[in-house]
Design a protein around this nucleic acid. Structure first.
Lengths: 215, 215
DNA sequence: CCTAGAATGTACGAACTAGTTAGTTATACG
DNA sequence: CGTATAACTAACTAGTTCGTACATTCTAGG
């Protein structure tokens, strides 16, 4: 139901383009203000079409929000699929995986905010989405294989669980971006200050590796 | 302006009691629904007095929310002040500090939610509160002293920064509670499941200590 | 006992907000 | 060329939400 069969794409009356624009504006607005803070009229005002189209294509505020979440997760997952660290030795692979995750979180603040917002709502919208509720994570598969190789080589402790390690990495990266505001307000240190970036990036790698090494 | 001078405390017409009840109900409501999701009328309905009192004592929704934040932080800080781990050797002190922080986060889910909510709002309310914006953290002082002792004894690496270590611990604990819903929706693992509690608690201690030990 | 002022309750309204109704224009296709 | 239908627009509405005006009751101090 997409893809113009012949001729150049019409500048006006392009359903796909309209849908995409609504999603893009809505993503920014929901990430910025939260689900309850976002205003349908505000989203409408910021796009080149009207509010009616938002209801035409998505059916309502909540379903638009779910569509936003679905697209955001899809984008992130497709990026994760490009991970290519399996040719490295286990230690270096872990370090790279951690640092790529680190970079990743830093360059997608909207996604992190959407996840925080969704947690405030106890993931009720994710639960309502078939697309999202059981969505596998390619980064976790990569991590699982690295751990196995490291265990076999005797450089990693044998009891390390992939999901636990993934959680450690996520916790560090998510906290750094998601909690930066209160952290900065209380401790007067901006965790996202560019001058501290290299320090935190290296620290995460060390943290994970020092945990993984057999004692 | 409190403390009845003579006679038994009046069951009705007790300004302090009314204030406290409003704060308690508002805390639950804001933590549950977020700032924009919370409804003034809903808070009013759940308390034994009327909405008028909320405006009489706090002036409005936003100022009530700030008062809620101030009280929540104050409570947490006073609990932190009771930390008593300085008599232990550095390694054991760190482990205990981490585990107490862990317990702490688990037993104050409302506080964690309020912090997440405040981060969605980029800490704008904390910034507006004189009480909160520069509030020192007793746990950080304790941590600083432990690290110093450990460094002197040669059991900790010399370049470990107290605030970084505090951040590591917080990241782990906050992520486990604040992001449990999306994590569970995606990975089908409840990080707060009681049967996994001991595992995570021990893991945090190991994580921090393996990072701190000189390599 | 009386009064000033603090504390409380009721009822209401102005502004906002999600969603809809009713109608219009462009485009694909025979 | 004509028409069915997808894409689109503007104006409106029903319900909500924060906040307030006004009336009332309790309590401390003289």
């Amino acid at each position: 139901m997409a893809a113009q069969p012949t001729g150049p794409p019409a500048a006006e009356r392009d359903a796909d383009r309209t849908r995409e624009e609504i999603l893009a504006v809505a993503t920014r607005e929901f990430a910025d203000k939260g689900y309850d803070g976002a205003r349908v009229d505000e989203i409408a005002a910021k796009m080149s079409t009207t509010k009616r189209m938002l209801y035409y294509y998505f059916g309502g505020k909540e379903r638009l929000y779910i569509a936003v979440l679905e697209r955001a997760y899809t984008v992130i997952r497709s990026l994760e699929q490009q991970l290519d660290v399996e040719h490295l030795d286990p230690e270096e692979a872990i370090r790279q995986l951690a640092e790529l995750t680190f970079d990743h979180h830093e360059s997608h603040p909207d996604f992190i905010r959407l996840v925080s917002i969704e947690n405030i709502h106890r993931a009720e919208h994710i639960a309502r989405s078939d697309t999202l509720s059981g969505l596998a994570n390619p980064a976790l598969d990569v991590l699982t294989r690295i751990l196995e190789r490291g265990r076999a080589a005797g450089v990693f402790r044998p009891d390390a669980d992939p999901l636990d390690v993934h959680m450690m990495i996520s916790a560090f990266c998510v906290f750094r971006t998601a909690n930066r505001h209160t952290f900065n307000a209380i401790f007067r240190r901006d965790m996202l200050d560019p001058t501290r970036r290299a320090h935190y990036r290296a620290m995460l790698g060390e943290l994970v590796l020092s945990y993984l090494r057999p004692h």
